[in-house]
Design a protein around this nucleic acid. Structure first.
Length: 563
RNA sequence: GUCCCCGUAGCUCAGUGGACAGAGCGGCCGCCUUCUAAGCGGCGGGUCGCAGGUUCGAAUCCUGCCGGGGACGCCA
């Protein structure tokens, strides 16, 4: 049993699962259990109560019906066969209504922790997925229109998308972070008209943009753009030109805000380029060849209902203009043509109505629908001292992402979003969040990391250094408890990757920090009277530090050496 | 009307088939001559929206209802 080899399971849980599978086959071979008609999925879980051991299986409960035997009897047989396996299994016993509880061997525990310390950069990083799993995942998120600064509303998508990308990367997949930049819609002209009106002291159009940033843009507007061109009486052309200038300036601000968050994008795709490079045309061509388009009332429609949608969808309007949907499907073709295996979109909950049509069109164009996935984020409902804050870019009443970061800090904000499901609506009282930011759980976790860093520094000063292995202290209760939690980290990453969620990581990081703070209380690490034990404890504490740093790093949060 | 998401402790949220339902914050009481008190220990706090059903077992799955939010455009 060697977890560091390529073929061995990367997790203790996986090793136990393998042992259980072998134990089942063994019991059948020996006639202790009847043969199964069909293979059963062997599940290993973690008991809620630590007294029940490190891992448990409900296999006996599952087998009771097909084998027509009482669960406790099956559990007893399985426990015996498991105990015979040895290796990762130190002890196995039947318990409760038919569970089999397993205690892992100290050797296996030590091996996985020592491995973490030998290769800290790979700790919790899973290998590339085997089989047909997607390898190159495209995650498109934020994609806010360039008509104003990013708001706290956009923040949800920014964090959810970046966190998802990080989790997928930890799961061994290649990720492209992508931003769709809408540079050619009427909103841009509208923005230009607003800036121009502001510049000329005229009232901003009713459906224009009213924020302070419009005023700022107006004052920065170069004269040659503001002035009407000779022979050009058309205000519309001027509005477009100014709109493009303004949206470019806004994009710079958006990029700067995102950089502040620690979010970087690999690819920025503009709406204009999708048309100019022929992607929209190609997409429409594919649909037409497949017979999925029809003409009605002067418009061209995609027969989305043939794929289960409740309505058909217009691709080309009767005035000849392309719909937003047309760009969407052009973009799908572009992304797949670039070699992406799997597309994920982070959209606000208000976009749920567009999910079906895009996936249907992908299928109609010959792509696997399962490879086009939308994650819808819930609303963030902001209040300030109990008063709801309306979030309108046009009215200019919104909180910018930059303001949020100023009040909370990047680490606290990241933690806040990482610890909640993407699809739940959440209420945030800005004042409350600001006041409580110093009590944010993220600092609790960071503090544990800083404390360990301090111990390691002090140990160095005292001439003590960590041993190569933690073996030697795993029989002592405080050490055994902490070591087991540290060893679980790869399983947490595995689960986070499978679920495409990060809540489990924050929950785990908090649990690990709690365990360390208790350990700090109960176990003396630096002890000149017992240098041997100190060395092993330093190794354990170092593994804990690496794990805390990896968990925080997975969330894009810093792990300070001192606080 | 149809469709989607949500409903768990005073507040904000984890837990989505297993063995007594958790955390943070807030409240109350203790602990710094000892490796960082941004810490530790203790107390109090829940008909898991409601009602049925499936299951050996349901906060978790199914149905219906109630409550909150959202979407139903030749807008983006």
């Amino acid at each position: 049993m060697n977890p560091s080899s390529a073929t061995a399971p990367a997790t203790l849980r996986g090793a136990v699962r393998e042992a259980l599978q072998l134990a089942l086959e063994d019991a059948i071979r020996q006639g202790a259990l009847p043969a199964l008609d069909e293979p059963r999925l062997v599940e290993v879980q973690r008991p809620g109560n630590p007294e029940h051991g490190d891992y448990a299986t409900n296999l006996a409960l599952q087998l009771a019906r097909p084998l027509r035997k009482p669960p406790p009897a099956i559990a007893a047989t399985l426990a015996e066969a498991l105990a015979r396996q040895g290796g990762v299994v130190a002890a196995a016993e039947a318990a409760g209504p038919g569970f089999v509880n397993v205690r892992v061997a100290n050797d296996a525990l030590a091996e996985i922790l020592d491995h973490a310390r030998r290769e800290p950069d790979r700790w919790g990083r899973l290998g590339a997925p085997e089989g047909p799993a997607p390898r190159h995942v495209n995650v498109e998120f934020v994609s806010a229109n360039p008509t104003g600064p990013l708001t706290v509303g956009n923040a949800r998508g920014a964090f959810v998308g970046d966190l998802l990308a990080r989790v997928l990367e930890a799961g061994g997949q290649q990720v492209t972070r992508e931003y769709y930049f809408n540079d050619s819609s009427a909103q841009v002209r509208n923005l230009g008209a607003s800036v121009l009106a502001q510049r000329e002291g005229r009232p901003v159009p009713e459906d224009g943009y009213h924020g302070d940033y419009v005023v700022a843009l107006a004052s920065q507007l170069p004269d040659e753009l503001a002035a009407p061109r000779p022979g050009e009486s058309d205000d519309d052309a001027r509005a477009w030109a100014i709109g493009h200038w303004a949206s470019a300036r806004i994009r710079e601000g958006i990029e700067a805000s995102l950089a502040r968050l620690g979010v970087r994008f690999d690819v920025w795709t503009t709406e204009g380029s999708l048309a100019a490079e022929g992607w929209v045309e190609r997409a429409i061509g594919r649909l037409r060849e497949g017979g999925h388009l029809f003409e009605q009332e002067g418009a061209t429609w995609f027969r989305s209902t043939a794929f289960g949608d409740d309505k058909d969808r217009v691709v080309i309007r009767s005035n000849g203009e392309l719909t937003y949907f047309a760009f969407d499907i052009g973009y799908v073709v572009q992304k797949f043509s670039r070699g992406c295996d799997h597309l994920i979109y982070i959209w606000g909950a208000d976009h749920h109505g567009t999910v079906a049509r895009v996936r249907n069109a992908a299928e109609a164009m010959g792509y696997d629908k399962a490879r086009v996935e939308m994650i819808l984020t819930g609303w963030v409902h902001f209040v300030r001292d109990g008063v709801p804050i309306s979030m309108s870019k046009r009215a200019g009443t919104f909180i910018t992402l930059d303001e949020l970061l100023e009040e909370l800090g990047v680490d606290a904000a990241r933690w806040y979003f990482a610890s909640r499901g993407a699809n739940v609506n959440m209420d945030v009282d800005i004042e409350l969040a600001r006041r409580q930011s110093s009590e944010n759980p993220v600092y609790y976790v960071q503090y544990a990391h800083a404390r360990i860093a301090s111990i390691l520094r002090k140990a160095g000063d005292a001439g003590l250094s960590p041993a190569a292995t933690v073996t030697g202290v795993l029989d002592e209760p405080p050490d055994a408890t902490l070591a087991r939690i540290v060893a679980r980290f790869p399983e947490v990453v595995e689960d986070a990757t499978a679920a495409q969620e990060t809540q489990g990581v924050t929950t785990y990081a908090t649990e690990l920090a709690t365990a360390f703070h208790a350990y700090y209380r109960d176990a003396r690490v630096i002890d000149a009277e017992a240098p041997g034990r100190s060395a092993h404890r330093l190794a354990l504490v170092d593994a804990t530090r690496i794990t805390l740093a990896s968990a925080l790093g997975l969330l894009g949060i810093s792990a300070p050496e001192a606080m």
